[in-house]
């Protein structure tokens, strides 16, 4: 098999063309870096406390700000309608598909991870990179308070 385009979707290209078709001439400027920070694990995964971070909100009318909520029992659902996921191809009725709190609890019971953090965190997707960085610090403080060894981010 041969082809003339890459297999995986370029969302940068897609969203630029999509919003241009809607009459938005100035494309969104994505943040770009050539390297990333790195903090090594200090203990094996089987001893790590794992915290989840999502882009979903607690409710449709929740304020646009970072939040934390209890990991267990996991919420029945989260608000996702405002996010740009593929509404024509799938759904977000199953929390395990985008915020796997119960899966992590099961992995903790099986000894694959040490424990699930008592809270998960949410950070809304916004255009302002400056404000996102400020919100990230709010999230970091909550994760640090909970003794999280690994933050797993599952953006929709």
């Amino acid at each position: 098999m041969t082809k003339a385009h890459r297999t995986f979707v370029s969302y940068i290209d897609k969203s630029r063309e999509y919003y241009a078709a809607q009459g938005y001439d100035a494309p969104y400027r994505w943040a770009t870096h050539t390297n990333a920070p790195f903090t090594p694990f200090t203990k094996p995964l089987s001893q790590c406390r794992v915290g989840l971070v999502t882009t979903a909100s607690l409710s449709p009318d929740a304020p646009l700000s970072p939040y934390t909520a209890r990991s267990q029992p996991a919420p029945a659902s989260l608000a996702t309608e405002h996010l740009s996921w593929h509404k024509g191809a799938t759904d977000t009725d199953d929390l395990g598909a985008y915020l796997p709190l119960d899966h992590l609890a099961a992995l903790a019971a099986d000894g694959v991870i040490g424990s699930l953090a008592p809270r998960f965190a949410g950070i809304p997707t916004i255009y302002s990179q400056r404000r996102t960085n400020k919100w990230a610090e709010t999230i970091r403080e909550a994760l640090a308070d909970d003794g999280v060894d690994l933050a797993v981010l599952t953006p929709l």
């Binding site: 943040a31 870096h33 990333a36 920070p37 790195f38 903090t39 090594p40 694990f41 971070v53 950070i123 990179q129 996102t132 960085n133 919100w135 990230a136 610090e137 999230i139 970091r140 994760l143 640090a144 999280v148 060894d149 690994l150 933050a151 797993v152 981010l153 599952t154 953006p155």
Partner: peptide, 15 residues
């Protein structure tokens, strides 16, 4: 960006 911030401040991350 959140992952980069957390990592820079000492919390390992996985997206």
């Amino acid at each position: 960006l959140t992952a980069r911030h957390l990592e820079a401040e000492g919390i390992p991350t996985l997206i």
